[in-house]
Every structure is written in C-alpha cells, then in structure tokens.
Design a protein around this nucleic acid. Structure first.
Lengths: 340, 340
DNA sequence: CTGAAAGCGCTTACAG
DNA sequence: CTGAAAGCGCTTACAG
C-alpha cells in the first residue's frame, strides 16, 4: 500500500494540508476541488481529487463546523428502543426536528453498556437534549454539562423545562369504565420501580390503586420482574393461578399488557369475557393484536411537539433563561378497544 | 434582561472570549473554570462561572472537537422508524456502537420531509454511515460525500461495503413447508416496489413466486398500497373476497402479515385452520400476537454486527480501501410458529 | 494562580 | 485560475 509515511492529522488521518502537499497545490485549491467550488481548472481539480482519494482524505466535521456553523443537533435520550414506545416517540421527534432542519442524535441509556458515558457524549455533541431521564435526572443533567435539557415525564421537579404526562383524568375514566362493565376483582400489574422502595407502587400504580379503592375495590397489586411483555405474561399467569376470581388486569404499560393478553390466552381465560386487560401508552401495536388493546393513550406527536418547542425555545431565548422551570402537560386519554 | 450588547459568536452566541471579557480574565482561565481543571482560585472560578451563566455560555462542540478529537460518530440511516424493523435494527446497532465508544446519529429518510438534506447532513456529521439505501443508493452515496458507507440489503451492486440479506434458503424451506401442510392456493402479498415496473414483483416477491411455481402452484400475486399493516389488511381482505379458495398469505414483511392476520379475523377466516399467514423479518412483534406469526427471520444482531464490523474496518484500514466492495451475507431463517 | 502563544482543520474573503 | 492571510472557538503546553 502506497500510504505516505507522514500524515499531519491525529490518528494518522490525512488533513487538507496533506492533500495539498501531495497534489502540489495550496489548501484553498483543495477546498475548491473537494467542495465543487468554481474557479479551478479541470486538470487541477482532477489531480487534487486523485490525491484526496489516494490519501483517503475526508474533511474534519469539526474544522468545517467551526467555520461554517454546521447543522444544529438535537440529542434524544431514550430508555430502551426495544419498547415500541421509544421508537414511536423518536419517530415523532425526528420528524419535527427534520422539518426544522435539525439533526437528531440518539442515545439509549437502557442499551448502552456505559450509560453515564453515553449521556455525557450526547451532551458534548448536542445543542439541546430531550430525554426520559427518570429517576437519574439530577445526575445525568449534571453529566450533560451546560446543554439545555427538556425532561420527558420527569419524576421529580425538572431542572429547566419538561413535558409532564398526566394520567389522572384517564385513570379516573378507566376506573369508572371498569365499574360500568362490572369488574369485581382487578389487578394492578406494576413495573419494578427504580425509585420507590421495594413493594411500593410506582406513581402510576399508586394512582390506579387509589382510583380503584375510592370506588370500593380491593385491588391486587403485583410487581412484574421487568417492564416487558414476558414479565407481564409471567406476572399475569401467576396472579391468575393465585386468584381465581381475578377479572381485570391493568398493566403499567402496553407491552406488559400484551404479555397479560398472551397469558390469558395461555390460561384459557377469555378476554374480555372473563378477564379485562388494559395497558398504558397507546402504542400502535395495540391495534394489531386480537382483541385490540384498551389503553390510556399518550399523544406522542403532541408530546414531541411540546418537547421540541421547549427545546428550541430555550435556545433562541424566547423562553426565560432563569426563574422557574417551564412545564407543559400532556394528558393521557382512555381509549376503549376490544380488550376491556 | 441584562444581556450585553455585543457577543462575539455567530448567531448571538457567547464565546469563551465574551465570558473572559465579562469576568475580566483570560480565556484559558475560563477553560479552567468551565472544565473543572485545577490551578484556579475558588474566587476566580466562581466569578467566571457566574459570567458564563449570565451569558448563557456553552462551549462550541466544534471548537472543542477540533482540539480534543471528539467521540467518533456513526450515522445510521433507516427507512421508517414506524416499521418495528427499523428500531429493532437501530437498537442492535446502538448497542454495539456504544460498546465500542461510538455515538450514533440517526436519520430517517422515510420520515424526513427533505430526505436529501437529511442524508447530506448525516454525511457531514458522521465518520461512517450504515444504512438501508435501497434503490436510491447511488444518489445518496453521492450526497454522503466522502464518508464510507455500509449498505444494508443493497438493491444493486454496493459501492464499498454491504451486508446482503439472502432469503433464498428460507424461501425454499417455506415453500416446502406450505406443501407439507397442504396449502393449495397461496397468495404472495407484495409491497409496492420503487424499483420494479408497476405490477412487477419485488425481488423477494419474485423469489417466493418462483419457489411456489417450481412446486406446481399457480400463486396469486398482488401489490399492497404500502408496506404497512393497514395496507396488508386491505390487500388481504380484497384477495379473500376475490378468491374464496385462498388458503395462504405470504406477506412481504411481518407488519403486512400482521395486517393479513387482522383481515382474516375480520373475514372470519380461521388462521391457521383455513388460511396460513407468513411474514418476513422475524420481528419480536410476531411473538406477541395470536396466533404467533410464522416468519422468515433475519438475525438483526448478526446483521448489526457485520455492519458495524465493516464500518469500523473501513475506517481503521483493516479492510482494503480500494478494489472490489466487501460483502457479508446474512441468511433468513424459517421460523414456524402458530400462523402457518 | 494567571496569561500570552500556538495550533487543531477548515473556509471565506481578498490579492495577484 | 491560484495562493497568502485571517479567523472560526476551543485547549494544551509553556511562561511568569
């Protein structure tokens, strides 16, 4: 391989100066050739391009960005892409961001081996970050450095901006619905909670339990091993075996509810005939199964719109830079389908 | 708002020099304060940080990247995040990339309003790109500039590197399976093809039709309006109405097959009793429905592994820089589940 | 503890 | 058509 012995760039990468030297021209001539600018003879251009090719030259995005600005970059921090909630949200954010000429960099703290570093890198590469930070928000906001952050469904008090999800209305509507359809023995199938003490219900779980109790129910409450379909199925199977009279499962999210649906099928318990099943999130997925899934739906487009608005507002100064944090609220909505 | 009248940075953004001036120190003292370096008195640090805060100073990622290198960035180009195939693939790539210390920037050419610009921006921000370029590969590779590209399931001859999907074995196995279970009148539910002439089957479709014909079938072939669940359902409903004896639907992908499943339910056609339904992709989704979906599965972790290997190999020079393009192959595998 | 200098890799005017 | 100069915003040695 006829690789020249000395390359200027770090990591043995060729820079514009290497190409210029190899082609026997100045660096601005290299710029002209590489960027297809006018004011260069065909012969020179060809020679420069050949040198660039030979040296495997690629312009540094940093050098370039420094002088020409570079596209704005929005960082999106998601939980776990394997739960369809994340990609549905990401799709909504991506679309809005693209429409405004923003790039989106994605980091998945659930998938990343070293989530701390993932968060930090995301901060270093983004002009603003939107993300589900959950319980680790304070720590991660710190890692993100000075980048403005819009928290999605924050657990505590948000640092700067946030879009809060409010399921209360939908939970009340659901509880009324369960009463109306004659449910007697509901189960709240909760996800394991990172924040609450073991055994303690999640925020959503507590809301559900409270709404049910106020209507005279003595709801069961169990924590699944994980917020996944498999864990939802396992939790449901076990509950079904323990409590023969169980006639409703309200799951922490849609994916777990899908697991509950499968478990009911496995146990020969008709849905919604014998057991009603309800999820939370409103994923598209819920319309593809049979019976279709009753759910407390979030309008992810609305969530994304608020988040992007807030994020961009923080940047262009249309939002106050100090003072109390700015919050938007998106309410869940009860969507009654086949399963309940 | 006590915003100072003059800010050095473009777009009215404060630079390190603005902060230095406001705090009455030199720029390297600002660096020390902002980056938590030693060799600065607490008093000075505090004053600098206050000035930075007041000016809403955030270090430019370009300036920083230019001197300290910055994390490597992998661009991932997907088709449409709303088809679960994309996020499942993205999750696999993200995990591998994160493990190797790479950031991932995501662009969705299906969702973006201006897909050309999306592609170009991705190229400008990435050290290497992995992507499903499909029929527009030549054009988009051009837009990506000099960034190395690993094509996923390329339609034509790949430019540099590619991971090719090979469904042939699985298609043969599926055709044998359909014979074995006594299917007589199969339908190939194809996706609309961007490349082929209208009415022409897609590459996958052609493979399926051929395998079926070689076994003595006279398979139906229809194009759905889109590669979506809804379109798959509509296509199936129409076909079911036209051909009463239809007893198998092989869909272009899993999402369409899910639509077919729903259509069969709607038409009162038992699956797999009266109609067998088969998808392609092997999405997790297929295990959550009832009956569970028989499919030609791609191992997305394997696909991602090859793609990331190839991408990183192109960068570190372990792959030849010129000569024929490098290809890896991932074979589909028949996974028989409940629906066929 | 603080600052003057040099340089990262590129592009944008400006001369020739 | 081509090149010498300046500068984008930052950090890393090196002096004081």
């Amino acid at each position: 391989m006829a690789r020249p012995p000395q390359l200027t760039g770090a990591g043995g990468r060729a820079t514009i100066l290497d190409v210029a030297a190899a082609a026997g021209v100045s660096r601005q001539t290299v710029t002209r050739a590489v960027n297809g600018l006018p004011g260069i003879s065909d012969a020179t251009k060809e020679r420069v391009l050949a040198a660039a090719e030979a040296l495997d030259y690629r312009p540094s995005r940093f050098g370039r960005g420094l002088v020409s600005g570079g596209a704005r970059q929005l960082g999106l921090l998601v939980d776990d892409l394997r739960n369809p909630y994340s990609p549905e949200l990401a799709a909504a954010v991506l679309r809005l961001a693209a429409a405004r000429g923003w790039n989106v960099m994605l980091a998945d703290v659930g998938l990343a081996g070293d989530s701390d570093r993932s968060v930090q890198d995301l901060g270093a590469q983004s002009d603003v970050v939107i993300g589900s930070l959950g319980a680790r928000a304070p720590e991660w906001i710190d890692r993100l450095g000075s980048v403005p952050v819009v928290e999605l469904d924050p657990h505590g008090a948000p640092a700067r901006g946030a879009v809060r999800l409010d399921p209360t209305d939908a939970v009340e509507a659901l509880a009324d619905h369960l009463v109306a359809v004659g449910v007697k023995h509901p189960l709240v199938l909760d996800a394991p909670s990172a924040v609450a003490a073991p055994g303690e219900p999640s925020a959503r779980g507590a809301l559900l339990l409270d709404a049910l109790r106020r209507r005279g129910y003595l709801p069961e409450h169990v924590h699944a091993e994980a917020a996944s379909a498999d864990a939802g199925a396992a939790g449901t199977t076990a509950a079904l075996a323990r409590h023969a009279r169980l006639d409703a499962v309200v799951a922490f999210n849609d994916v777990m509810a899908l697991g509950a649906l499968a478990a009911c099928r496995g146990a020969g318990a008709d849905v919604p005939g014998r057991v009603r099943v309800v999820g939370i999130d409103g994923l598209t997925l819920g319309t593809l199964v049979a019976p279709t899934l009753t759910t407390l739906a979030v309008d992810l487009d609305e969530l994304a719109r608020h988040a992007v608005d807030l994020a961009l507002g923080m940047l262009d100064g249309s939002l106050p830079r100090s003072g109390p944090s700015v919050e938007r609220v998106v309410r869940h909505r009860l969507v009654v389908r086949g399963s309940a």
